[in-house]
Amino acid sequence: MSAPGVVFRARALARRYRMGEVEVRALAGVDLDIGAGELAVVAGPSGSGKSTLLHLLGGLDVADRGSVEFEGRDLAALPERERTLVRRRRLGFVFQAFHLVPVLSALENVEWPLRIDGVPAAECRRRAAEALAQVGLAERTAHRPDRLSGGERQRVAIARALVHRPAAVLADEPTGNLDSATAAAVVGLMESLRRELGTTFVLATHDPALVERAGRRIRLSDGRVVEDTGAGAAP
């Protein structure tokens, strides 16, 4: 069981992938605690295991070895249906390529996590509009993703990740497709939302500027944690 205030607890986390004939060691025994309200940046070069760590923390994948506890629950031990509910209600995801549904408007994209959870349509719309307003897109609710800039799309993705008030948001290279000014604005937005909502943010990036701004830096190399500036503590 995780200590109070700890949102994510990873222990001896290991994951290997097979790529054709080659077996790739993505994570090789990671121990990590991330507390509530932290903004932790997972840094490291490509192939260091950042994305894999986020996938395991978010219950998108299951480790070969070790365990991940989220809010005190061992994700790997949960049935698939329960894991889906955890992702739907307690976690938010932001991806490098935004991954918005192209045929849905910004508002519809944001309200999706609520709609699939059975929240009444009117409330979905209200909360989605609020979330879009929080990320500064109150005027762009009816636009489909192809009518939005990269920064706007990422803000829609952030609104979608936050609309259901999750305990934590996992963001994989959230600024990877953005110019530096837009990237700074997006990170600033996440910081302010973390302060405002108390949501835990875990960001995977190899953007040095973003790493420098982080309250907590977790650096990975070859699937291992080689630097952790403040394990378990909120910045």
Binding site: L60, E80, R88, F93
Partner: peptide, 16 residues
Amino acid sequence: VRELGTLRAIGTGRGQ
């Protein structure tokens, strides 16, 4: 595929 993966990631159930 990627869109369906995203929907699953953000909590869309298999039945949905």
